[in-house]
Structure formats: C-alpha cells, structure tokens
C-alpha cells in the first residue's frame, strides 16, 4: 500500500515525533508507515484521515497487483 503520510506531515512542518504524538502511536510506527514497511490498521488509517482532514483514500492508496 502506498501512502502520502510523509508529504502531508512535511506540508504541516511536523516532525515524526509530533505526528506520532497526535496519532497516539510510537515514532517507530510512523517511520515504518512512511517507509511502506507497515500498513496501518483501518482505525489508525481513519485516525490519520481525521487528523489531516482528508478522505482516507487521499492518504492511502492500494498498490496495483503485478499481474
């Protein structure tokens, strides 16, 4: 899954630690999501969408399958 978390965070001049605090998760979780190494749960994705005031599909996009 692709996401725009890093871009949206940078637009607001938030550090990873600040975003982690706003989403009530650890900084490692933000790092992993931004790097695409971890896909957040639906509740966390909705929480991020509420925080950024955007629809969830504007932040997280499904990767097209290779075939």
């Amino acid at each position: 899954m692709n996401n725009r978390l890093k871009v949206l965070r940078a637009e607001r001049n938030w550090t990873q630690a600040e975003l982690a605090e706003r989403l009530d998760v650890s900084r490692q979780t933000i790092v992993a999501i931004e790097k695409g190494k971890y896909d957040p749960s639906l509740p966390l994705a909705f929480k991020a969408a509420r925080l950024f005031g955007m629809p969830i599909e504007s932040i997280f996009q499904d990767e097209p399958s290779p075939d």
Binding site: D24, V25, S26, Q28, T29, A32, Y38, P40, S41
Partner: peptide, 8 residues
Amino acid sequence: DLDELQQK
C-alpha cells in the same frame, strides 16, 4: 497499551 506495530 502498546500501539499496533509494537504489539505486532
């Protein structure tokens, strides 16, 4: 109380 990634 851990977040979802830390729990994983």
